[in-house]
Simulated assay, not measured.
Amino acid sequence: MLLTDSFLDYLLYERNYAESTVKRYQMDILELQKFGEEQIEELTPSGVDAELIREWIIFMMDRGCAPATINRKLSSLRTYYKFLLRRGEVEVDPLQKITGPKKTKPLPVFLREKDMDRLLDDIDFGEGFEGCRDHMIIEMFYATGMRLSELIGLDDEDVDFSTSLIKVTGKRNKQRLIPFDEELKRSMREYVNVRNEAVSVRSDAFFVRENGKRLYPSIVSSLVKRNLSKVVTVKKRSPHVLRHTFATAMLNNGADLGSIKELLGHESLATTEIYTHTTFEELKKVYNQAHPRA
């Protein structure tokens, strides 16, 4: 018998785990036991070795278990064998050199360039200050790739119209400069004029509410979701999607990864490389749709 009642009592009474959690540990261990007993007639805790664990992992993967599920089951077994080692019931932890399957990172969601063109050129954002501001926010995200926190944190003094540079304060207060073109410059000047006319008392913030105070993250997230819904049906419609859209558009139009890394404020090039996978997936879709033998 692989499972010991003393382990379940330990989780329940010493670790104060919920009964549902203890039940999950029990099921994970019994699942390994069932698999192992198909190969070993009478399975004991000391009879489990690394080879059996690896075969169990392959078995679960073949059945379509997600990496997260497999790693959770391995975590249950690791806790169990640490318990057995402390009590001297086994001499070796068979999971010591076991590495679970890696979780596959989902590719970033992004909008096609034609959808962004339609949103910025054809969609009505409404009249007055709020409509102008909301359009400016969408355009700013798409033109610069900045994060939500960076956009909210922008002050008037961070936008230098003479040099066409925006100073952005990113993670860990690290600052970087993002250049902007004539089109964005015209849009920003128009927004500033409308804002200054509509809002009499303001803070130092570049983007403000009607009362002149800095925007909340929830306000920006809500307006982005509302306006993206006008051109796309993708489930995720957040400011970060516009950041992904900026990076993908830059890559598709010839920018090198190093430049995109600097514009996005990534610490590592490896983080930026996810966009090459995104572009490749898009190329595969185009190929499958267009090629007669695809």
Rank of each mutant, 00 (worst) to 15 (best):
L111C: 06
I98T: 13
A143R: 07
R202H: 04
D5Q: 12
K230E: 13
P179D: 02
I40V: 15
K285E: 14
E262N: 13
L111F: 11
G100W: 06
S259R: 10
L251R: 02
L269Y: 09
E31L: 14
M188D: 12
Y216K: 05
N196G: 13
I137A: 01
F59R: 07
L12H: 08
D5E: 14
V109D: 04
E197N: 07
Q175M: 07
M140V: 10
P45N: 07
I53K: 05
Y13P: 12
M61P: 02
D124P: 04
L154Y: 01
L228S: 00
S221E: 15
L154M: 06
H266D: 13
G88E: 10
L257F: 06
R86F: 05
S75K: 01
Y17H: 12
R186W: 09
F35L: 09
S268D: 15
T248M: 08
L215K: 00
L269A: 09
R112C: 10
C65F: 13
Y13G: 09
R172H: 06
L85F: 07
N193V: 10
D181W: 11
P101Q: 05
L264R: 04
T44F: 06
T21H: 02
N16T: 08
E14V: 11
E150L: 03
A68M: 06
I58P: 00
R237N: 02
K185H: 12
K284M: 09
